[in-house]
Write a protein that binds this DNA or RNA. Structure first.
Lengths: 149, 149
DNA sequence: ATATTAATTGCAATCCATTCGCAATAAGTG
DNA sequence: CACTTATTGCGAATGGATTGCAATTAATAT
């Protein structure tokens, strides 16, 4: 209920309305540790609201993103699809295994350091960094032999 | 001529053929320091070969990418468009100014360090990193007042 | 040089994630 | 409860990138 009120208040102060769809979609992202794309959010949400439309999912994801409740991410080199996760996690980046498609979270302060150094050097101000790594996880390095070196 | 032979040889050893289109498209990327998307490569190439088709540009960019002659990049948070640059430059990343759309190149060893540390820690093997920064350059920070903090 | 054959091109159609227009619906105010 | 306007559902549209296919052309063998 605290959370519901939080979302409702955030929406209200932006002149937006609380709707079952918005509540549902945020709760799905809040309660998973998976990394979901819009299609998967839609799939999961539709189980609980069969009338839900994919356009609403996209619109809601954009609203939640603008309100800084979720983060949009890209995984892997092919950026054809956007993924979403809640902002409650700390700073982290993603490594996608090309073998098993597993996503491993990478924690490091170095990205922020790069930003700080570059900002100090040039006077620029950072608003966002997109970082994603690609390769083969230990398991797949062991089992697979052929990939680009 | 040395370069032409280099491309021809690379193509040949992959079972591919040297064509005027491929030579043209690589030369455009080789001779510019701009960051071009497929559309812009097409625009520039079409001036020299008016029959050229955009599909050929996309196919050629993919060929050149697979042969590690060019790198595909994304700039800024909105990854709707892919950009290309030759691999002849050293390791660097990109900062996109949301004010003036200028792209500033960022040189730092820290990204490679993150990869090395994570590889040592987990046994994973990296094949690619996608890193792009977004914000406001010094000029735009000075002149603009309103942006997300 | 010429013939051969498989890669490549140009063109149009297609894909697919995401967005948009719009009429119907529903949230929040008074 | 009524009213206003944000929001939804639906289908159509968008736009960058890809693909199928017949015509063309590069590279090889003759």
């Amino acid at each position: 209920m605290a959370e519901k009120t939080f979302l409702a208040n955030k929406l209200k102060s932006a002149g937006l309305r609380m709707t079952p769809q918005r509540k549902l979609i945020l709760s799905i992202l809040d309660e998973t540790s998976d990394h979901l794309d819009a299609e998967e959010v839609y799939r999961r949400a539709k189980k609980l609201n069969s009338k839900l439309n994919i356009a609403t999912v996209y619109r809601t994801l954009n609203v939640l993103k603008e309100m800084d409740l979720i983060e949009q991410r890209y995984f892997a080199r092919d950026h054809g699809v956007e993924y979403y996760e809640t902002v409650t996690k700390g700073e982290h980046y993603h490594f996608t295994c090309l073998g098993c498609r597993k996503i491993i979270e990478v924690e490091t302060p170095k990205i922020k350091q790069v930003q700080a150094e570059f900002a100090a050097l040039t006077g620029a101000q950072f608003t966002h960094a997109c970082v994603c790594f690609e390769g083969y996880c230990a398991d797949c390095v062991d089992s697979e032999e052929s990939f680009t070196l």
